[in-house]
Amino acid sequence: MEKIEFDYPAQHKVLKRAHVGVVGSGDLEVLLEPLEGDRAHVSIQTSVDGFKDTWKAVLDRFFAKYDGAVRIEIHDAGATPGSVLLRLEQAVEVSQR
């Protein structure tokens, strides 16, 4: 298991937290919460080691479109980059409901 952390600049205040997904085979759990200040912090625990670059690429892509000031915690059980993006977008959607 590997732990990875990233920070991104953020602009918008987020009001609601969101929880989506499950730590099941090929899936992941995302916890998204409002964070004070002008940044987003992402911490990842993944059962698959050695994919830090891939995580960075996925999150770069996600934060290119999203600028919420949030703390995101990811518990990953070997999800594909596509599933990760989908779950992140789903978390944002739930937080905006």
Binding site: R17, H19, V22, V23, E29, L31, Q45, H75, D76, A77
Partner: peptide
């Protein structure tokens, strides 16, 4: 005791298994 209370297993991470919140 929902996911944001983060009552995770203390035993999984020490065995290299990703916990769930």
């Amino acid at each position: 005791a929902g996911p944001f209370d983060r009552m995770e297993s203390p035993w999984l991470a020490m065995q290299g298994v990703t916990p769930q919140a």
